[in-house]
Design a protein around this nucleic acid. Structure first.
Lengths: 98, 98
DNA sequence: ATTAGTACCTTGTCTTGCAATATATTCAAG
DNA sequence: CTTGAATATATTGCAAGACAAGGTACTAAT
């Protein structure tokens, strides 16, 4: 059921601070949402291709360089839309539960 | 983003009272969730095949007979799981939003 | 050199949402 | 008595997304 909410979660995370894929996975896990790399990488690439995200390379203190993703203005606009959509869904469920 | 939540909505509706497809669509529309027939029928059939729903025919006061879907015990159990999953997702979003 | 750890990426499969279209029943109007 | 409108159910074909599995590449320590 988490399907579709994932994209929203990613934008929420990146709206607060830029991050690289493995860090995003960790943060989601801490928030109780399990995501694997095979899901996340294509998603990030899609978002980047659509102009919602951009990225820059940064050296890692240990291991290969990291790809830090950054949310764009367009991405912030999308996030606002998704905030609204999310609230609507929550309201819908509440309505059906009453 | 509504993806995946749909199944949950259907079970919520049918947990309260049995209903036929067109009525479910109307109820969802009233709760602000647009669903079309090509989405709902396959979903209902899947649920039935997995034993979460069953149905019975009933004459309509006007038009062709209606297929009233009824939630099963197994369906109620699934609904409980989905309640838990849904609450978890809501909590996750709240965590990420803080 | 080899291994372990970290990180990025791709391929193939399955599920799901939807547009478009088809089929069937009832009833009323011509 | 057939045509059309309204109500219902159902299928097909396409596209998007989630994920398991597998692959590539860089760094540092042994």
């Amino acid at each position: 059921m988490r399907k579709g909410v994932l994209e929203y979660c990613i934008l929420c995370i990146l709206a607060r601070k830029e991050a690289y894929a493995s860090a995003i996975i960790e943060e989601l896990k801490a928030a109780n949402m399990i995501v694997v790399e095979g899901t996340l990488y294509p998603l990030l690439i899609r978002e980047k291709n659509q102009g919602y995200l951009t990225y820059r390379w940064e050296e890692s203190p240990q291991g290969p360089p990291r790809k830090y993703y950054v949310i764009t203005e367009k991405g912030k606009a999308l996030l606002q839309e998704m905030d609204a959509a999310w609230n609507e869904i929550v309201t819908t469920i509440e309505t059906l539960k009453k």
